[in-house]
Amino acid sequence: MTTSTLTAPDAPAEAAAPESRRERRRRERREDLDAAIPVELYGLKRGTVSLLTACCVLFAIFTLVPVAWIIFNSTKTQANIFGTFGFWFARPFEFFHNFRMLFENVDGDGTYITWFGNTALYALLGGGGATALAALAGYGFAMFRFRGSKVLFYIIIGSLLVPIGAITLPLYLVYAKAHLINSIWGMILPSLVSPVGVYLMRTYIRLSVPRELIDAARIDGAGETRIFFKIALPLMVPGLMTVLLLSVVGVWNNYFLPLIIFSDNNKFPLTVGMGLWSQHATTSGDQNLYPLIVMGGLVTITPLIILFLILQRYWRSGMLLGSIAN
């Protein structure tokens, strides 16, 4: 049976052109505007908005002061770092010289570049591995109800209460017995354990992987591993990215563990290396280490900041998980 319709013809659909980043930002800002309650409804006194914006600017300045300082001073010689005004450049402009120095082994402490490579290695392997384990464990806790799962989960979360010293220091002794001292695996393996990651993944999976989907797949005869990889995993991706980001950052910034287990300079990550430089800079003041420390600091934080800016939406949604408390 045919049906006919009665209306004016529909307006031609807008061709969906891919959005540029600026367009997307503008659209997001407009959506924010629509989603927010209009400001005037709050009954604020005039000038409150400007006052609050000023506060934000002040705090933004406060936040950026060290970063600005590091940028300016990475271009200076040691004398100038201490001699000239901290928040502007000075002659000579030593940025590239300082940068090149990072590739050299300064006073036997080790080469910055080596440390950088180490950090990247530990962070990627450790962070990636932590994410994988957290995803599996989170899935197990979210989708299955086995004996003791609740208790086990609380124990895992409870481990956050234990001070790092209580775990890391004896770890050194354990390593001594297992010949793991000074080994990269000694750094990477413990980094695989992320209780926060398990918590976040479990929360995220509960929210985004519908139980019915899994049950339907089971009825259709799929095995559990297949279900995990083909069905659940694609749905978990945003949560995975968040946990990955947090794990990588966590390992990148880890200081205590590598401090204890590494004695070989070449295995140091950036944190330990920089700490060592800082120590030597004061004890043997001649070394001209300060420009290197500053430049090293700059190079250390730049990749992470860039990563953060690129992956903004992931840590935003991650914060959403973080605030849905226990």
Binding site: M1, T2, T3, S4, T5, L6, T7, D10
Partner: peptide, 28 residues
């Protein structure tokens, strides 16, 4: 007779669809 529907699926068209689309002579 030919059934008429309000654009974008009025109530009539929808109900007919529910009653058994696969039957060749669908109700109208």
């Amino acid at each position: 007779a030919t059934q008429a529907a309000v654009a974008e699926g009025g109530a009539v068209a929808a109900e007919a669809a529910e009653a058994g689309i696969l039957v060749a002579s669908a109700p109208n």
